[in-house]
Design a protein around this nucleic acid. Sequence first.
DNA 1: CTTTTAGCTGAATAAAAATTCATCTAAATT
DNA 2: AATTTAGATGAATTTTTATTCAGCTAAAAG
Lengths: 191, 191
Amino acid sequence: MKPKDQNKVEAIYRAMLGLVRQRGLAGITMQQVAREAKMATGTLYIYFKNKEALVVALTDKCVRHVASNLFRNYNADAPFKTGFATIWMNIVRHRIEFFNESLFIEQSFHSPFVSNETKLALKKSFDPLLLLLQRGKDEKIIKDVDSFWMLAFIIGGINEIARRVNYFNRKASQQVLETNFQLCWDGIKAA
Amino acid sequence: MKPKDQNKVEAIYRAMLGLVRQRGLAGITMQQVAREAKMATGTLYIYFKNKEALVVALTDKCVRHVASNLFRNYNADAPFKTGFATIWMNIVRHRIEFFNESLFIEQSFHSPFVSNETKLALKKSFDPLLLLLQRGKDEKIIKDVDSFWMLAFIIGGINEIARRVNYFNRKASQQVLETNFQLCWDGIKAA
DNA sequence: CTTTTAGCTGAATAAAAATTCATCTAAATT
DNA sequence: AATTTAGATGAATTTTTATTCAGCTAAAAG
């Protein structure tokens, strides 16, 4: 027997992400995916039951990937600003580096394929940040604004940075990220 | 002769926007559009040469719609903060009220259909805001940060508000908008 | 009120895409 | 080294979707 080749799965995922970035989930066919991944169309069906299963599997993978990066190096015992900055940088770096994945999540969330469960999982992965924001409010370090909207403010800015890096081909140097962090920080910090 | 019915065009657009919101540009067929717009599939082809033409026309319309709303009531001679607040509110209200259109633009921009020209047009429509930001910097009212990134910060927050209003079914009262504006303003204002 | 013309319909056709499958490898087991 | 079994292939098939069209309808023009 010949074993399944994990590299093939990776190649399929990579092909999907690249094509969706270029042409949207709307514009891709299984043939294109196969061609991009350098394999026969039939091979796709050895690894995934059908197109829907492929989209679902990749979405799950991307969502798990986000979750695994959000709180890297985060120490809940550190001072508020330190912890917040760590998470902020984690998110922005992830969005920039794995922009294709973020885009894919966005598009697949609007497809008929993805379950509410998966959508919930993504939302849940931000919970520790909500906890931290609450702490910041308790400690009077940040403004007493509903966390739902404060998170919108924080995440929105980050998303747009990633979008611009990728669409306008801009470099986001450490310098640029720190400046942007400052904008965000000045926005949320208590008067 | 029977004249073309502008209401039909509107119905088609409305159907598209609703369906794309629900299922993504990926997930819709001409039959679905026709059904949603309460007409025969053949009728679609009286008003639009084909699917691509429909997507392109609707994208153009949505882009022009944004442009026509951005600077409503804006007076370039007013004090900086007044002008900025006007534009900020215009954008956020437009994004919330016409969220389907924003979403459609996003998706169609990732389809193989839309021209760079159209993409440029959308970008250009923000030029007066860039001008205003420059003035704010000259007058030392706001931070001396590259307008490209400052705009990312401003627009990002707005986008995410609209997204959350629509996905999480939240009301964005005047109160909420003002609070969010304050976050943005505190972020950009000079130290 | 008749004619004319263009819109409207939805079943029929064409085109495109997903999925299957007979055949052919290549890896693992004996 | 031979055998077995599952992966790999890509053309063939099925399914889905876009597009067309012959017949029908309604508005405008005369």
